[in-house]
Design a binder for these strands. Structure first.
Length: 290
DNA sequence: GGTTTCCACCGGCAGC
DNA sequence: TGCTGCCGGTGGAAA
């Protein structure tokens, strides 16, 4: 499951491989073409597969950056700029290779859905096992309004203030803290794994109402989230089920997780508990987290 | 109009 | 062995 640190690692590896190259042609897997023909928004969002293929031809990749868990590819053709926004969903992955056979793992090779053939003969491949990811071609970011509603980058100066301000709004104040810190409009890029870890480190019960946490504790919690995201970026991300970086390599952050996926609390050795919060499985220590 | 709830998008896998 | 149901990041429709 790629979260912010995993996307950051991917972007850092992808940018030097992709920037400056020109797309010659695009092919889309039959299964995605069929889904789109049945009217579903499968991977290619906001336009037909034919439109996407035509629109992507002759594009130069100008830059590759990250915004929250999204990959932003700046594109240019005939002096006009475009933006390709990619989200990895649960199981998306990008590969730069010279042939399909270079995608080492069979499960990714079996689920290649978009293949960009570059003018230099190389391939830029998007693979996605569960097809929850997306590729959305825009003129500018504002053409897809939800992108503008994203919280600031967690490492930006105004991110903590934004988080605190949100927690004071009526629509967030009575919600469980875990649901709120995982909301992309409140904090960018904090998914289930890192929310679970941060709440454990802070000894806060994931179901605790936001209004029952002091300002000081909320500020500390935010800093813990930022620190864990940074620690994970430095460790190459967490490799849980299907995430791989551009070279097909795994990260090591999963070995440093203290609560996510654990059966026993590493502090007090009590058996962990699990409950649904905001529709997502939440693991916690019933003794340490209050 | 703001807010909450529900559903769609899917393959893998646990459990029966 | 084969079937059923559950899981999940995000957007959009419905209530």
């Amino acid at each position: 499951m790629p979260e912010l640190p995993e996307v950051e690692g991917l972007v850092r590896a992808l940018a030097p491989e992709a920037v400056g190259r020109v797309i010659q042609d695009v092919s889309i897997s039959p299964i995605v073409v069929e889904s789109k023909e049945r009217g579903r928004e499968a991977i290619i969002k906001g336009m037909s597969t034919e439109q996407f293929i035509q629109n992507m031809k002759d594009m130069t990749i100008v830059n590759v950056t990250r915004r929250s868990k999204y990959i932003y590819m700046d594109l240019e053709r005939n002096g006009q700029s475009y933006l390709l926004v990619s989200h990895l969903g649960m199981t998306g992955a990008w590969f730069t290779v010279n042939s399909i056979e270079e995608v080492m793992e069979e499960k990714f090779r079996r689920h290649i859905h978009v293949t960009f053939t570059m003018k230099d003969g190389g391939l830029l491949i998007y693979s996605d096992i569960r097809r929850f990811g997306e590729l959305r071609l825009l003129n500018i970011e504002a053409d897809h309004p939800p992108l503008l509603k994203m919280a600031p980058e967690p490492f930006d100066d105004d991110a903590c203030t934004h988080f605190i301000d949100c927690t004071l709004l009526p629509r967030y104040a009575r919600k469980p803290i875990k649901e709120v810190i995982m909301d992309g409009q409140v904090i960018s890029g904090c998914g289930n794994i890192y929310a679970t870890e941060a709440l454990f480190k802070m000894n806060i019960h994931p179901a605790r109402k936001v209004e029952r946490i002091s300002l000081k504790r909320k500020q500390e919690l935010f800093q813990v989230i930022v620190d864990i995201l940074q620690e994970s970026i430095d460790a190459g991300g967490s490799t849980i089920s299907d995430y791989r970086n551009i070279n097909g390599e795994a990260g090591t952050m999963q070995d440093r997780l203290k609560m996510y996926g654990q059966k026993e609390c590493p502090t007090c050795e009590v058996e962990t508990k699990s409950m649904q919060i905001g529709g997502r499985t939440s693991v916690y220590c019933p003794k340490c987290q209050r």
